[in-house]
Write a protein that binds this DNA or RNA. Structure first.
Lengths: 219, 219
DNA sequence: TTTTGTGAACTAGTTCACAGCT
DNA sequence: AGCTGTGAACTAGTTCACAAAA
């Protein structure tokens, strides 16, 4: 029906569920793999087999943004990949700041997987004078968190990753928001209160472990 | 109606949704905080206010496992905390093995938050001869992944955390399963195929970043 | 024929609203 | 009066099933 709209335009992102959005990211990764394998086309049922998903689910997710498939044929791998990158906003490099130069913060700063594919770790911050000025093993300098606003503005950083201890997280989140960051990935085990225009995603490692534990057979 | 059952007994864990299980973990953390603040009782609506949740949701989650509250009064903080620990299987210390001594693996091994509260990082593995025998900054020795089965059996390790690169993840998962681990927390961007008795939880940091990106206002 | 795109049916998850205790 | 526990109502998410297109 709706002829392929100019990619993502006209679709209100707020109306798309987070479940759909995270599946889009999954599809994108899979398409990159398929491209690497030299595949030119892929069907929704082929994709579905690779994850544990229903084919109609995948078609529905994609159909939100336009008609990318060809009936009887499937999806063209390269084209769909570019469309997904555009839909996810990955056609430009996004700069990321990590706040909290503890073990996790430094590991994320140095880990290639995190820094590749559309993201660049542009800065690492801490409030500990002992750490400020030192470098991670990967060579990134730890900067004073009081300079967050300045660096965010100068470097055009858009995303903040919070890896400080829980008691400091709320204050840091507030600081990030007022520095102009509009998306926060929070690893601290604390619920953050931020202005409505800032999107927060919590990743609680302990919660994941405890959930696994729950399903484990009991002694 | 159902008088408080002997804690968790008689409730088939498989029938409880993962959403509920992860909320239980959230409630537990909140109760620990409340205990620290010296609170003796808490109502479902008080708890609901702390997260962004509905009070009936919380009552329903808890009611699956028994009647822990008192009408007109609420829940007793200490008692409910102990019940939740027992329900989640946290009344005994669970040992964890980390497979993959890269930046992330080492960071998780050393990070106190991950290792505390019912979990102990019992071993760290890698297959790189350069790394085997070396120590993390926290002092944990990197062991040869070929000794996984042996160490898992000897130490009574139950949970595996996979922090190897994506191409190695499937093989490592298989190895974990055959070593007797029944729960895997997978940080590699790859879907794992494992025997049905092994529970896998995927944590994909790139996926989280991309999802955040999707909701960000466009240039 | 094959596979998309999509309304309709279904399933899971959440919220409401109130009876039943304390 | 106040708050839990829970059936009933509602909402969101998934799967089915088929018409439409190549």
């Amino acid at each position: 029906m709706a002829r392929a709209r100019p990619l993502g335009t006209g679709v209100s992102r707020g109306a798309v569920s987070e479940l759909t959005a995270s599946r889009l990211s999954l599809y994108l990764r899979c398409l990159s793999e398929l491209e690497g394998e030299g595949a030119t086309h892929v069907s929704s049922s082929n994709l579905a087999r690779r994850f544990d998903l229903n084919a109609a689910q995948i078609r529905k997710d994609l159909a939100i943004f336009g008609e990318f498939g060809v009936r009887g044929v499937g999806y063209e791998v390269g084209t769909l990949k570019r469309h997904l990158q555009s839909i996810l906003g990955l056609d430009q490099t996004r700069k990321v700041a990590i706040i909290g130069a503890g073990h996790l913060g430094q590991a994320l700063a140095d880990s290639g997987g995190f820094a590749s594919g559309g993201f660049r770790i542009a800065a690492l911050f801490d409030d500990d004078p002992q750490k400020i000025g030192s470098r991670t093993r990967g060579g990134l300098v730890v900067q004073d968190v009081r300079r967050l606003r300045e660096v965010v503005a100068r470097e055009g950083i858009e995303i903040g990753v919070i890896t400080v201890p829980a008691p400091a997280a709320q204050e840091v989140a507030q600081r990030c928001a007022s520095a102009g960051l509009r998306a926060l990935l929070n690893f601290a085990p604390a619920r953050l209160t931020v202005p409505a225009e800032v999107r927060v995603k919590n990743v609680d490692l302990k919660e994941h472990l405890e959930t696994l534990c729950f399903y484990m057979p009991r002694a």
